[in-house]
Design a protein around this nucleic acid. Structure first.
Length: 584
RNA sequence: GCGCCCGUAGCUCAGUCGGAUAGAGCACCAGAUUCCUAAUCUGGGGGUCGUGAGUUCGAAUCUCGCCGGGCGCACCA
């Protein structure tokens, strides 16, 4: 259970009771009341701002309301002390048996601890990665991939019905370039000397194997054919080959999708016409001429009439073109159709994970969603900032031309998927992230992955030691579940249990805010609390987890640290990181 | 020129839909190992939260101006 929402509900009831008794006005808005852990532990275990928020509408002083409420709060189950502090905070202390019961919850739930029904099975669509199918994924893609994957898992844990989606940009001119690039590699495979890859085509040698496969399959069928004949065939072949490669890269990183949606299929299925017709009916599409951008003019600027979407009526700065001069749709037009399609598939809640270089695109997409869904659809675009690759404090130089281009696969092969995933999630998405090859492989507390993993491994290490010490074979789950948790009375132990008890609240708030990084910080905190308690055992032997002449207490403490391992494993599961049993 | 994001300790960053004396790690200084992994821990110094106003019981958080940095700015995706 989330103990804060638990008390929040109870306090809301008390307010209703007070209203019925005539002590407070009826119908007060309690929705903005928060119940949280106080910043300073000396203020107790749980605090609420209820009195201060109700002061104005109830026309009483915060302290008076606090006094009324405090008298009632004192009677709540688990509450052992209530104080009114500062401008009107109501601080509560909660008894040891309450905390022991929370540990019981954790042990019973296992890694399911923290699962929440807050999302109420609401459908959410998370679109992430969506890298163009023109080459292997590079490190920049990894961040968005991991972020989207973890956000999806987090939302699932918080009770949302999540679909993970990949949008394949296979309709623009870049896939024609891909096809021409592959055609060259195909000629090469047939034994022709193709020389240097011309400017404007993709030079990467990742197309070489695909060229060979194509040559084997089709022989010299396309050798002297017109481009108009071979382009569609080779394009399809190339896109499939690139998507296979991307899927392999994603699999190496442990990133999964439920659904791959093709832009080309949308266009061919008439979805863009449908979306545009829908907007036309509302008079939101027109032929017009855009003002040139202020300041520096693009070199090739020319005034021309275009088909425009009235984005400015929905919060965008200017209206946006939907058709190119050759008559094909702009990327924006197909993207509108795609989002309308998602909405019509039942996703009023959409999350897109994009690279920061697409930031200028957010407003127009939000404008489009408003127009297309009549304000019913909500899009949250999460922009992931750049990852700077470092090696021992020095920037890693990358150049596509020199071939020192670091692919996602290179990074995963070098440091492992768990490290890549965790590090990518240690920063807010809109903050830049430094990824230092040397640091992330270090086994020290500078390295957050290691630090958290070590705490989990340490629990297991203690379990192994305890088995030997107690001489009764491995500690069974039954023994842990049968432990007398009433023996956990020390303030250090209770502090650890209190921190563990925050996990459900962390999950809910991180899910609602779409901020998986909060979990990384929480896990670091929990690991620190655990390592701290472990070390206290050095100074004070009475605080060690294993007390050889008190089996009951030992089992209780083992149950407690099993709880720590459960919570860490529960968090790492959201991140898609495997908890380790042993450090090597 | 316009839009979006960012500005918190020497460095890297947290900071709960506005809450109490602004936190953590690194670095620096001083300590802890007959002991469950010292791969760890304890303590200390270090801040006009870029800046100036406003909103209110209360602002790092919300609003506006300014300064500094990143990204983007018609027919690319």
């Amino acid at each position: 259970m989330n103990l804060f929402t638990h008390f929040r509900d109870q306090i809301a009831e008390l307010i209703t009771e007070l209203a019925q008794a005539g002590e407070l006005p009826e119908g007060l808005d309690t929705s903005r009341i928060t119940v949280e852990p106080p910043r300073d532990a000396s203020h107790g275990d749980v605090t609420t701002n209820a009195a201060m928020l109700l002061a104005k509408p109830a026309k009483k002083s915060p302290r008076d309301i606090a006094a009324l409420l405090a008298a009632k709060v004192e009677g709540l189950a688990g509450v052992t002390g209530v104080e009114i502090a500062g401008p009107g905070f109501i601080n509560m202390r909660v008894g040891t048996d309450f905390w022991q019961a929370r540990l019981r919850d954790i042990l019973d739930a296992g890694t399911a601890y923290g699962d929440s029904a807050a999302g109420a099975d609401q459908k959410v669509n998370v679109e992430y990665v969506s890298a163009n199918p023109t080459g292997p994924m590079h490190v920049g893609h990894a961040r968005g991939a991991v972020f989207g994957d973890a956000l999806a898992a987090l939302l699932e844990k918080a009770g949302y019905d999540v679909t993970r989606e990949y949008y394949i940009n296979d309709a623009g001119s870049q896939v024609d370039v891909l096809a021409r690039s592959l055609h060259l590699r195909y000629l090469e495979a047939l034994g022709e000397d193709i020389g240097e890859i011309p400017e404007g085509l993709y030079p990467g040698d990742y197309l070489v194997p695909a060229g060979k496969i194509l040559a084997n399959r089709d022989g010299d069928k396309w050798k002297d054919a017109d481009e108009a004949d071979w382009l569609p065939v080779i394009r399809d072949f190339a896109i499939d080959a690139m998507m296979d490669m991307i899927r392999d890269d994603l699999a190496a990183l442990g990133v999964k999708h439920d659904l791959f949606t093709s832009e080309r299929t949308l266009v061919q299925g008439g979805k863009v016409d449908e979306a545009l017709d829908f907007l036309k009916e509302q008079g939101l599409i027109y032929e017009g001429i855009l003002e040139p951008p202020k300041g520096k003019l693009p070199d090739d600027w020319e005034e021309r009439e275009q088909t425009l979407f009235k984005a400015s009526a929905f919060g965008d700065d200017v209206d946006r073109p939907v058709a190119k001069s050759d008559g094909s749709w702009t990327y924006f037009a197909t993207d509108m159709a795609y989002h309308l399609d998602k909405y019509r598939r039942g996703y009023a809640d959409m999350i897109d994970v994009w690279g920061a270089d697409h930031g200028g695109y957010v407003k127009r997409m939000n404008a489009a969603i408003k127009a297309l869904t009549g304000g019913e659809g909500v899009l949250d675009v999460k922009l992931c900032q750049m990852v700077s690759l470092m090696d021992n404090g020095e920037p890693v130089k990358m150049s596509k031309r020199a071939g020192t281009f670091v692919t996602l696969r290179d990074v995963v092969d070098k440091v492992g998927k768990d490290v890549v995933r965790f590090i990518m999630l240690t920063r807010k998405n809109d903050a830049g992230l430094e990824f230092d090859f040397t640091k992330v492989q270090e086994q020290s507390k500078d390295n957050p992955v290691f630090y958290v993993q070590y705490a989990h491994a340490r629990v297991n290490s203690v379990m192994r030691m305890a088995s030997e010490e107690l001489g009764a074979g491995p500690i069974s789950d039954d023994a842990i579940h049968g432990a007398n948790l009433g023996r956990l009375m020390d303030e250090n132990e209770l502090a650890l249990i209190k921190l563990m008890s925050q996990w459900p609240r962390i999950v809910e708030s991180a899910a609602v805010q779409h901020e998986p990084h909060r979990i990384a910080f929480y896990l670091g905190e929990l690991a620190a609390e655990f390592h701290g308690l472990w070390n206290k055992g050095n100074k004070d032997k009475g605080l060690r987890f294993i007390i050889s002449d008190d089996q009951e207490l030992t089992l209780a403490r083992l149950a407690m640290i099993r709880g720590v391992a459960n919570v860490i494993a529960s968090g790492l599961k959201v991140f898609g990181v495997t908890p380790v049993e042993e450090m090597r």
